[in-house]
Design a protein around this nucleic acid. Structure first.
Lengths: 183, 183
DNA sequence: ACCTGAACACCGTTCAAGT
DNA sequence: ACCTGAACACCGTTCAAGT
């Protein structure tokens, strides 16, 4: 029975979750599908668009921020963090794809629209939105990296409290900064 | 005349500046030094510590923030941005090395100390400092990526104003948020 | 002490040829 | 339509052997 395109994406996501981004190679993915590496290129044009597809799946169903801007953005940031934490190395993956420019529908668009809707001028809204997205991705990236390094590093781990409360505090700090931008 | 260890670092930095991080391979570095790839391992234990050495050089001489916290952090952020902008892909490089855990003297320590010195409790100071570092690296990363993609993308580039003024506005937003953390 | 030659175990990607 | 076999042009790293 022949492979279909979603089989490939699903298998790639499984490898990502179990072995991490560094071990997600085309050859390994082919192995897990019982096929030779070259066969993958019938279903996907190259590795980069495959990874972009993973990002789409990971972020699928993330709703735009709604309601009063402050609570809306806080909830949206929480939801984004949850989706990222659900898949190993996803923050790293998303950061890489954003850097390459493949953001498809850019993550910051929703928050930016939320802020302009609340009366902030577009430039400041865009800045606040991008800063928020940076923070979420950066924070989750640290959280996910710590999981990988945790077993290695001894009890002398860096004094980074982290976790959900640290995240919320950081978001609160940012929202305070954004609040100060309003006229 | 035999190679010494700083020759290797210097040549690596030259390749980084001219061809970017993706093209900085051990084999290419060896070529530029007129030597075979294996020879590099006499001078450097592996590629990762070589890259860590580059980060050290790039950040060398960056002074800790001084004076009143707000102006001190703003100036420090500017100085960090300048050092990063001086070398191609340096923000990507620094972000990668921080993620790996090799931060040597962590960038956020200086700002954190500045904030605790100004009377902020250590947890909030650490959070504010890390958020600031995230922002600087993330922002410069975007600036440097845009340079690479600029020639490819047409005039329909994303509406990201960026540059020095955008950077300063972002830092200002963050500092407002930090100010709100003070008791 | 410093480097070469040659290998090992990998990569992503292409493409004729098979079914 | 879908896949194999085999190649191309690479990687980082090791290590005997040379000088």
């Amino acid at each position: 029975m022949a492979l279909n395109d979603t089989d490939v994406t699903d298998a790639a996501l499984a490898i990502l979750d179990e072995y991490g981004l560094a071990d997600l190679t085309m050859r390994r993915l082919a192995d897990s599908l019982g096929v030779r590496a070259g066969a993958l290129y019938w279903h996907v044009s190259n590795k980069q668009t495959l990874l972009a597809g993973l990002v789409t799946v990971i972020l699928d169903g993330l709703e735009e921020p709604a309601g009063p801007w402050r609570a809306g953005l806080a909830g949206w940031a929480d939801a984004l963090r949850s989706r990222l934490l659900a898949h190993r190395d996803s923050a790293d993956l998303v950061a890489t794809m954003r850097a390459i420019g493949m953001a498809a529908t850019d993550l910051a668009d929703g928050p930016a629209a939320c802020l302009t809707g609340a009366g902030l001028e577009p430039e400041r809204a865009g800045l606040g939105a991008r800063t928020l997205v940076h923070f979420v991705i950066g924070h989750v990236n640290e959280e996910q990296q710590r999981v990988q390094l945790g077993p290695l590093a001894g009890e002398d781990a860096p004094p980074v409290p982290s976790g959900a409360e640290d995240f919320r505090a950081g978001v609160g700090l940012l929202l305070d900064g954004i609040a100060a931008q309003f006229p």
